[in-house]
Amino acid sequence: MSDETEQVEAAVAAELRLMDPAVRASRERAMDLLDPEFVEVGASGRRWTYDEMLAALPELAGATGRGPRHEPSHMTGAVLAPGLVHLTYETALGGRRVRRSSLWRRSGDTGDWRMYYHQATPVPPGRP
Score class of each variant (00 low, 15 high):
residue 125 P to E: 12
residue 49 T to G: 08
residue 120 A to R: 03
residue 62 G to C: 08
residue 23 V to R: 01
residue 96 R to K: 12
residue 20 D to M: 00
residue 105 R to L: 15
residue 117 Y to H: 15
residue 93 L to S: 00
residue 109 D to V: 15
residue 39 V to F: 13
residue 13 A to H: 09
residue 69 R to T: 15
residue 91 T to P: 00
residue 95 G to F: 02
residue 39 V to R: 08
residue 115 M to N: 12
residue 118 H to E: 07
residue 15 E to Q: 14
residue 99 R to G: 08
residue 61 A to D: 13
residue 26 S to L: 03
residue 81 A to P: 04
residue 61 A to L: 11
residue 4 E to Y: 08
residue 68 P to T: 11
residue 121 T to M: 08
residue 19 M to D: 00
residue 52 E to L: 12
residue 124 P to T: 09
residue 90 E to C: 09
residue 32 D to T: 06
residue 101 S to F: 07
residue 21 P to L: 03
residue 55 A to T: 09
residue 33 L to H: 04
residue 66 R to C: 08
residue 103 L to A: 09
residue 20 D to K: 00
residue 102 S to H: 10
residue 75 M to T: 14
residue 88 T to S: 11
residue 30 A to Y: 02
residue 117 Y to L: 15
residue 43 A to C: 10
residue 15 E to V: 04
residue 3 D to A: 15
residue 47 R to T: 11
residue 17 R to D: 09
residue 3 D to I: 14
residue 101 S to L: 07
residue 116 Y to C: 01
residue 48 W to D: 08
residue 88 T to L: 08
residue 94 G to Q: 07
residue 45 G to Q: 06
residue 20 D to G: 00
residue 78 A to C: 10
residue 29 R to D: 12
residue 22 A to E: 14
residue 36 P to N: 07
residue 35 D to H: 15
residue 5 T to R: 12
residue 77 G to A: 03
residue 53 M to C: 10
residue 13 A to G: 13
residue 88 T to E: 05
residue 125 P to I: 05
residue 77 G to I: 08
residue 40 E to C: 10
residue 56 A to D: 11
residue 83 G to L: 03
residue 39 V to W: 02
